[in-house]
């Protein structure tokens, strides 16, 4: 897996049609793959092996499902994943659409949102869990004080 910073840079390139710009359908497929790579980072950080399975025809959705197991707050990026799939479909199914570049830019924004959310979550545990956080995922659990009782 590439570092998250490299993924972020590549997403930005694809969204701004940097030269040499790949064909829209190719770029859309790459954005989807970058989204999968971001999810793989999250799953690997949890000590699991990212699934190769697909859900509704997409590995991205299967990876999201895997990443959300036992981590309800991870569902805060469920719709972002689905939007990425939707925008990829828009582009791949109609690559000659007059607004295809705009659609590609939108897909890149969505992919970047996924990257930022998960990147943030890997720094700060419970991000998106409405809200605030205190324990970095990478820190030993012993660093976090036990929650006091209600009384």
């Amino acid at each position: 897996m590439r570092p998250l910073a490299e993924i972020e840079a590549r997403i930005a390139e694809l969204g701004t049609a940097a030269k040499p710009a790949p064909a829209p359908a190719v770029a859309a497929a790459e954005l989807l793959a970058l989204g999968e790579e971001v999810l793989c980072h999250w799953i690997a950080a949890r000590g699991e092996t990212p699934t190769a399975e697909k859900r509704e025809g997409f590995r991205l959705l299967a990876l999201h499902r895997q990443g959300a197991k036992g981590e309800p707050s991870f569902n805060a990026c469920r719709e972002t994943c689905r939007e990425l799939v939707y925008h990829r479909n828009l582009i791949v199914m109609d690559p000659d659409h007059p607004e295809v570049r705009k659609r590609l830019a939108m897909a890149a924004l969505v992919a970047n949102h996924l990257h930022l959310f998960i990147g943030g979550k890997m720094e700060v545990a419970q991000l998106g869990e409405f809200c605030c956080s205190s324990r970095p995922l990478r820190a030993p659990s012993g660093d976090h004080p036990e929650a006091p009782a209600a009384e």
């Binding site: 719709e79 943030g120 700060v124």
Partner: peptide, 8 residues
């Protein structure tokens, strides 16, 4: 419905 980053 995406995250606004309010948490951090």
């Amino acid at each position: 419905t995406a995250c606004c980053g309010g948490a951090h």
